[in-house]
Amino acid sequence: MTNVFIVVISFLLVVTLVQLVRVGQLLGDIRKKDFNVVTETDNKRQSFLMLIVGLAFLASCVWQYFAWNPLLLPSASSEHGVIIDELMRFTMILIISVFFLLHLFLFYFLHKYKKSSDKHKAYYYTHNNKLEYIWTIVPAIILTGVILYGLNVWDRITNADTSEASVIEVYGKQFGWNARYPGEDQKLGSHDYKLVGGANALGIDIDDVNSLDDKVTRELHLVVGKPVLMKLRSQDIIHSAFMPHFRVQMNCVPGMTTQFVFTPTKTTKEMKMLEGDDFEYVLLCNKICGVAHYNMQMKVVVETQEEYDAWLLKQGTLSEKLLTQK
């Protein structure tokens, strides 16, 4: 029944539209005026609308900023995240100013220079090389600044010192994550994808002595203030390990190992005080990977060295796990 209604209503709407347009055309015929010629009244109305809607759009942007600001990510919980946030603030201030400035010019010109009467003539002005040089060179100078600042930050992030960092492997597969800790020898054992199966979900080579004390976990625990060298692998397709609170993201690519270095600066407990009791750090997948892509996550906990040691002690080593299996 609803379907019939929808069809009938749509049909009537189209008929109404046709009739309205035809009335317009007939009126035009009677008044001997072409109904579709743009008149001065049109120009006045449209340019006025442009000004009103344009300013309303700019106002709505401001409203969105204030209304939704609390929903945005809290300030970074990692050392390099802080410098990213600074760069972001600088860039945002720059682009938002340019956004408002150019739009105000646009809406003002449209309103001011509408054709308002027959006498209104445009000014024949084809080019002005000096002006054009200025508005090529000024953006070029500003962008040089943006590029240098950006590259400096990028360089500090990607060339971070790894000598002090503890290695942790993050392993993605449809549709979940594992972390692997190197154990007391601080060395991750080697791996081969052909060994994946059963209890050995990460395909670790147990003939390698470094593997024996490795620990594979379902959660990622990090020590506050201690640099982490995160090694990323994937079992099947490309995933992306995204930890928005730390400003960390890196793809996990089958067949190769990627990495990211960062230092967490705030414990989960501290964040709970700041952001509310529900707060949890999270690692989520940010590269389309299939049906449950939207729910591929791992809990991340940042804690003190003591808490971390206690937690890690409880995790069984790989040799224990695999030997009990056998």
Binding site: N43, F109, Y113, K115, K121, Y125
Partner: peptide, 10 residues
């Protein structure tokens, strides 16, 4: 600059 001092028809 093209819009500037034009005689704009909407």
């Amino acid at each position: 600059a093209t819009l500037w001092r034009g005689s704009i028809r909407f």
